[in-house]
Computed example of a mutant assay.
Amino acid sequence: MDKLLTVIIPVYNKIAYLKQCLDSVLSQNLNKIKIVVVDDGSTDESEKICDRYKQKMTVIHQEHKGLIAARERGLREADTKYVTFVDADDFIAGGMYEYMLSKADEYDADIVTCGCIRYWNEDDYAYDLCSEFQEGIYEKKEIEDSIIKKMLWSKEKDGWCLDPSLCMKIIKTELVKEQYTQIAGNNFLYGEDSAIIYPLIFRVNKIYISTAPYYYHRQRERTITAPYFVEEDFFEKTFKLYEYLKMQFQQLGVVSIMEEQLDMFYMNSVQLHRKKYKGMISNNYKWLFPFANVEKKSRIVLYGAGAVGRAYYEQVQKSKYCEVILWIDKYVQEENIIYPIEDILNIEYDYVVIARVNESARIEMKNVLMKMGVSEQKII
């Protein structure tokens, strides 16, 4: 095996950026890398640009199947020790892979990760270390003691401490292929990299962390919201990622370590859907409606008219995720939209959602409902 690294570049309608991306990869030490471009059914003539590079890299055309399928197709061509990915609208700095391969060779690392540059244009960019960990090699015990405990979520940072992006890493090919067999058939919204990297960390023995910013991650204009944040099925796809990660952690026997991190990661992810509604930024989102436990388009009774109840009501009304057919509280307000608890006996509903901070109060409210004949299975 002469080559050491396979670089997989999925392409779908990126004509404006594709040439810069491909040229940046070709600027690397080609004695050590193999380049595989997968055109995923482009319709904007990106496929023609790909074909111009056929002499220098492997080019594959397929019907449009999505990012996971495109990466999986590229992985079939990977016969090198390491593999990495580049998004077709991004580009990389010269010497990136030579540097990362040198660290992989020096330490026999399973993963080498680097920093990036968040890039708007040549006059507007920001350096990102992509990690809260110090630069250097981490072996199994250090991975368990330092990285795993806060890789997905840190209370101090209020976010992840290890960027999940596969594009900023070179990883032993056998590990990536194994992890991709786990997600076959899934269609995650924006978390494919998270679905791969966080379970994979439990399977590695050595990680080299570099803060050198080699990868140029192109950003949308600051006024433009990423399309996946505003899609109608955002909640379903986000919950699908949550369920998948939880299943992976259960299989690995690490739920006790990862449960809180995963819950915080999920709650933060769901709140990103607020970007769809320009006026939804408010302190009410200290309390997030339990989207994970309520099916879309359900008919719900909302029980509680305090700060939590009002936050839930606002989120449901603006997102139209489900329908509040009755809002009840012990103390009826003057707004003519909040009714006595007894009114629940006169309607049909799918769930009753209790909105209260205090745990003992929630238990009391649940008991009241059950005494009135409400099924426990319907109470959230």
Results as ranks from 00 to 15, higher is better:
I354T: 06
L345I: 11
M168V: 13
V59H: 03
L22R: 01
N31M: 06
Y198P: 03
Y82N: 04
E98P: 03
G309V: 03
V112H: 05
R299H: 08
I379V: 12
I197L: 15
E236N: 12
R52S: 01
F188S: 02
L252K: 11
I347A: 06
K297D: 02
M57T: 01
R222H: 13
K237I: 00
K149A: 06
H217R: 15
E142Y: 02
H273A: 06
L26Q: 04
M258Q: 10
V357N: 15
K371I: 07
K378P: 02
D110W: 00
I207L: 13
N336G: 14
G74R: 02
L162M: 13
D105F: 09
E122A: 13
L262T: 00
T223Y: 14
N121V: 08
E221A: 13
S46Q: 05
E334H: 09
W120H: 11
R203P: 04
Q315A: 12
D128H: 13
W120D: 04
T211V: 09
I344R: 07
E47S: 14
A212T: 15
E63P: 06
E63Y: 12
C130Y: 04
D90P: 04
I60F: 11
E132L: 08
L326A: 03
D343N: 15
Q219N: 07
D193S: 05
M280H: 04
P199T: 04
Y277L: 10
E323T: 05
I328K: 08
I257T: 04
Y312H: 01
S102C: 06
E295N: 05
I363W: 14
K34W: 03
Y215P: 01
Q248T: 05
C114T: 11
R76L: 15
W153I: 02
K54I: 02
I281H: 11
G115A: 11
Y12K: 08
Q251L: 14
P227A: 11
E221C: 11
E63D: 13
S282R: 13
K56I: 09
E260T: 05
N367I: 08
S154G: 03
R299M: 08
D343T: 01
V255R: 04
G95V: 04
V368E: 15
K177W: 08
I170P: 03
E98I: 09
K3D: 01
V204Y: 10
Y214F: 15
D108N: 03
D90G: 00
I224S: 12
V332W: 09
S269D: 12
L302C: 05
G253A: 07
N346M: 09
E47I: 07
